[in-house]
Simulated scan of single mutants.
Amino acid sequence: MIMTDVRRATSADIEPAADTLAAAFTGYPFIRHVVAADDHERRLRALQRLFLVEIGLAHGAVWVTDDRGAVAVWTTPDTDAAAAFGPIADRAAELAGDRAGTSARVEQALGPHRPTGPTWFLGAVGVRPDRQGQGLGSAVIRPGLDAADEAGVTAYLETVGERNVRLYRKLGFEVTARVELPDGGPSAWCMSRPPHAG
């Protein structure tokens, strides 16, 4: 296992962090389901950059490894979802292309399973393919979990793929719901982690 320093992201990290997230999510079944196939890689990177800049850096928290080979983007209990997501909704739908309707229905399907109280929500975590298997994903997730523990609030995420479920269980998450995504999409697992004392 190769470890590296983890730190809060700054504006200087935007482009390499967006590259990492795009590389990590290439071929991910969830993304394939909600983002148009035409010009897919450009759309994917633009969506990841939009989320990183307009949600994570502007309204939440982002951690990166020093080489930006791993990135975690969170919303926090202080994030005003309407103020954060409202202004980018049209751009996100445009980038989703002909999958915009499906993307909206996926959000509707997952919405009832999301926590309603104060939550640290792990919106995206990605590790560059050539750095996977080195513990970097857990390393960039850990500061958000520590912050949730310190605040005494739940951490939450949604994932696709049973391998991911096993990885998140090692970090203390448990499955709260399994959702068959609409329009023939994959299964998604909603996972929650209660705050840990000390």
Rank of each mutant, 00 (worst) to 15 (best):
M1E: 06
M3F: 13
R8F: 02
R8M: 03
A9R: 13
T10Y: 05
T10V: 09
T10F: 00
A12E: 11
D13Q: 12
I14R: 10
A18T: 03
T26F: 05
T26H: 14
F30P: 00
F30N: 00
H33E: 05
A36D: 13
D38N: 01
E41R: 03
E41M: 02
L44R: 14
L47Y: 06
L47T: 13
Q48E: 14
E54F: 12
I55F: 10
H59W: 13
G60T: 11
G60K: 12
W63S: 02
D67C: 05
D67K: 12
R68T: 14
G69E: 09
G69Q: 07
A70G: 05
V71I: 13
A72C: 04
V73K: 10
W74T: 07
T76E: 03
D78K: 09
D80F: 15
A81H: 11
A82W: 13
A83Q: 11
F85M: 04
G86S: 09
G86C: 08
P87F: 14
P87M: 14
I88K: 08
I88W: 10
A89H: 13
R91D: 07
A92E: 02
A93P: 00
E94V: 06
L95E: 08
A96W: 15
G97E: 08
D98L: 08
R99E: 04
R99W: 02
G101D: 11
S103A: 14
S103Y: 15
S103P: 00
A104Q: 10
R105T: 12
R105I: 09
V106Q: 07
E107T: 10
E107Q: 11
E107F: 13
T116R: 15
G117S: 06
G117D: 08
P118K: 10
T119M: 11
F121N: 04
V125T: 14
V127R: 08
R128I: 05
R128L: 09
P129Q: 09
P129G: 03
P129K: 09
R131I: 06
R131K: 11
G133K: 11
Q134V: 06
G135P: 06
G137M: 08
A139G: 05
V140C: 03
P143R: 12
P143K: 14
L145A: 11
D149A: 11
D149F: 15
D149I: 15
G152Y: 15
G152K: 10
T154C: 10
T154Y: 09
A155N: 07
A155E: 07
L157K: 01
E158C: 03
E158I: 02
G161H: 01
N164V: 00
V165R: 03
R166Q: 06
L167M: 13
K170S: 07
K170V: 03
L171G: 04
L171Q: 12
T176R: 05
T176K: 01
T176I: 02
R178Y: 01
P182K: 14
D183K: 05
D183V: 03
D183T: 04
G185A: 09
G185Y: 09
P186K: 01
S187M: 08
W189K: 01
M191I: 06
M191F: 08
R193M: 10
P195D: 04
P195H: 13
H196T: 11
